[in-house]
Amino acid sequence: PGQLAMLRKAQEFFQTCDAEGKGFIARRDMQRLHQELPLSLEDLEDVFDALDTDGNGFLTPEEFTTGFSHFFFSQNNP
């Protein structure tokens, strides 16, 4: 059940980042969130680099979900 909730949230957040619906998140998509989230451009760069595990400059839904699952389960399993 937790897995399903996590996947739903991950998908929702992915769409928030990929506002154009390209199917991936580019670095500039992440920088655009600067206007919506209380994070600095530097923080958003760090987030992008942390999620982009293969370092190709694009975040796939899989990479995003993997990163989010670590956060989600660390929050829900103290």
Binding site: E12, F13, T16, E36, L37, P38, L39, D43, L44, D46, V47, D49, A50, L51, G67, F68, H70, F71, F72, S74, Q75
Partner: peptide
């Protein structure tokens, strides 16, 4: 170990990022 430090930092920055997304979602009607 610099790698461990980088790992901990990125974990914190990711937590910050996802928490911001969560509050953005819950904050809007």
């Amino acid at each position: 170990d610099p790698n461990m430090k980088a790992g901990a930092t990125s974990e914190g920055v990711l937590a910050n990022f996802f928490n911001s997304l969560l509050s953005k979602k819950t904050g809007s009607p």
